[in-house]
C-alpha cells in the first residue's frame, strides 16, 4: 500500500540531510511501528509523506497504492487516502470542530468526485464516532482543538481519522502527553479502525503505546535510516536496553 524507496530528504533552508535512504513498505491490513531515538528522522518522515513545506526530497520515491505522492499537494495526498495524526494538533479558535470535520470530509469527497455527505447522515456518523472516543457535544461545538487538553487533542485527531476513513494512517507520537487512560482510549479508537483494507504507520519513541496498538512489524530508525526490522518483540527489546545498541549498528 505505502511503498517508500531510498528516500533522501534534506532541510530546504540548510544543507542538512535528515533522511538518508529510507526503505519501507506497509501492506494493507498491517500495522507498522517506527521507533527511534530523538532526532532519528521519524517525525520528518511523517511530514515529508504528508507534504509539509520546508523539506526537499533529493532522491527516492514514496507511493501510495502505486501513485507517486511526493509531488502532490498536501490536500491531494489526503484525498488519495493519506492521514497524519499530528504530534501537536493545531488550535483553530472560532471555527467549530463539527464545521471543520464536515468541511474536511466534504473537501475530500469532492476531490474524489463523490457527492457531499448530507448533514443528517454526517451528524449521525459524527455523534456515533465521537461517543466511542468519549468526545461530548461540547467538544464538537468548540473551536477546533481550542483550549483542549493534550488528551482531548489526541482523541480529536482519532475522531478526524475515523470520519475521514483514510487508506493509510500515520500516527506521529500520538502517545506523547497522554496519561494511561487517555492512551487506552486513543488506542481503542485506532484498533477499531484496523481492517484488511487499511495500513498504519505508528511512530513512537516509547514502547508503551505498542502494548495497546499491537504492531505486526516494528522498525527501528536511527540517523535517518531504518536500521532494524522485526516483530513486536523488537519493541520490547528497545524498552529493555534502549536505543544505544541500534545506534551502534549504524555506526
Amino acid at each position: 500500500m505505502l511503498t517508500i524507496e531510498n528516500l533522501h530528504v534534506k532541510l530546504e533552508e540548510e544543507d542538512k540531510e535528515i533522511l538518508k535512504g529510507v526503505d519501507l513498505s506497509v501492506e494493507a491490513g498491517k500495522v507498522h511501528a517506527i521507533m527511534g531515538p530523538n532526532g532519528s528522522g521519524k517525525s520528518t518522515l511523517s511530514y515529508v509523506l504528508s507534504g509539509r513545506e520546508g523539506y526537499e526530497v533529493t532522491e527516492g520515491s514514496a507511493q501510495l497504492d502505486g501513485q507517486e505522492i511526493l509531488e502532490m499537494e498536501p490536500e491531494e495526498r489526503a484525498a488519495a487516502g493519506l492521514f497524519l495524526a499530528f504530534q501537536y494538533p493545531v488550535e483553530i479558535p472560532g471555527v467549530g470542530n463539527m464545521t471543520f470535520l464536515r468541511t474536511a470530509v466534504n473537501a475530500q469527497r469532492k476531490a474524489r468526485g463523490q457527492e457531499e455527505m448530507n448533514s443528517t447522515e454526517f451528524l449521525k456518523l459524527v455523534r456515533a464516532r465521537a461517543k466511542e472516543l468519549d468526545i461530548d457535544a461540547e467538544m464538537l461545538k468548540r473551536g477546533v482543538n481550542s483550549g483542549f487538553s493534550g488528551g482531548e487533542k489526541k482523541r480529536n485527531e482519532i475522531l478526524q481519522m475515523a470520519m475521514l476513513e483514510p487508506r493509510m494512517c500515520i500516527l506521529d507520537e500520538t502517545d506523547s502527553g497522554l496519561d494511561v487512560d487517555a492512551m487506552k482510549l486513543v488506542a481503542q479508537g485506532v484498533n477499531k479502525l484496523r481492517d484488511a483494507g487499511r495500513g498504519f504507520l505508528v511512530i513512537t519513541h516509547y514502547q508503551r503505546l505498542l502494548d495497546h496498538i499491537v504492531p505486526d512489524v516494528v522498525h527501528i530508525m536511527a540517523n535517518g535510516r531504518i536500521v532494524k526490522t522485526g516483530g513486536p518483540e523488537l519493541a520490547l527489546e528497545v524498552e529493555k536496553s534502549g536505543y544505544a545498541d541500534f545506534a551502534g549498528e549504524v555506526a
Binding site: G51, E73, E75, V90, P93, G94, T103, A104, A107, G143
Partner: peptide
C-alpha cells in the same frame, strides 16, 4: 500561520479554503 495552514490541508482542505477558514478564525475573536 503556516502550521495551521498545513494542518487544514493535511485534512484535505484546499489551500484557498484553508486560508478562508483561518481568516474567519482570526476574525472570530
Amino acid at each position: 500561520d503556516e502550521d495551521s495552514l498545513f494542518y487544514l490541508r493535511a485534512r484535505g482542505v484546499t489551500k484557498d479554503e484553508a486560508t478562508d477558514i483561518l481568516t474567519l478564525s482570526f476574525l472570530a475573536e
